[in-house]
Amino acid sequence: MIRGWTGPVSVFGAVLLTVVITGVGRRLVSFVVASLPLVISILLINTFIYPDATDALATVGPFTVTGTGLTVALQAALRVIAFALAIGVFVATTDLDDLLSDLERRGLGRRAEFVIGSAIRMVPRMVERAGEIVEAQRARGLDTEGRPWRRARGLVPLAGPMIGGALNDVEERTMALEARAFSAPARRTPIRRFPDSAAQRAARWGLGLLIVALTVATVGGWLNVP
């Protein structure tokens, strides 16, 4: 079944407009580049092999390009790029620490804030360390380009210390948290306040309501998106 173009095109257009307005275009290149393998895969597989599509446009060897497949491929690619760009705009414009502080002031629990905030800071440090371990392995002859089972041997020296070290720390982290009154019942004292204009508030509520309205209208059948 082919869905119409309105959805993918308007979503893509909206995201593109946001990119232009925020002026973060340059910082999004890495997000788009990183989603290329997925986009290429989507384009190739759907264009050439789409189940039960009969509207052949051309034939290349054993494969047939179908109109249905091409349409689906382009629509899915638009969605994926729009998704990647949207995440990119979010990351480029939003300081996650500030977001968490603000959410906390609005009632996000200290446990949720701690888990998310601490995980976000831990990931880049550990990616770096994992990279160092793999490099060290490579220097000692690990083959990261060879056959799968050869590469798989690199896993043990990587996963072992990483998981072991991380779990060993949990005990001390727990006690350090308790020593800092983490399980106190009071609400945490907010220390940051962010400017929040009436226009911003209105925009947030408006967009939220728009999502609900569009969802209800399309699901309920009042609005037919071609």
């Binding site: 888990v115 998310i116 990931v123 991380a166 948290l177």
Partner: peptide, 17 residues
């Protein structure tokens, strides 16, 4: 508190590995 201390570590292990 102990589970809260474990969760970020678990999340990081998931992602990094």
């Amino acid at each position: 508190t102990r589970v809260i201390a474990l969760m970020p570590v678990a999340i990081a292990v998931n992602i990094v590995l």
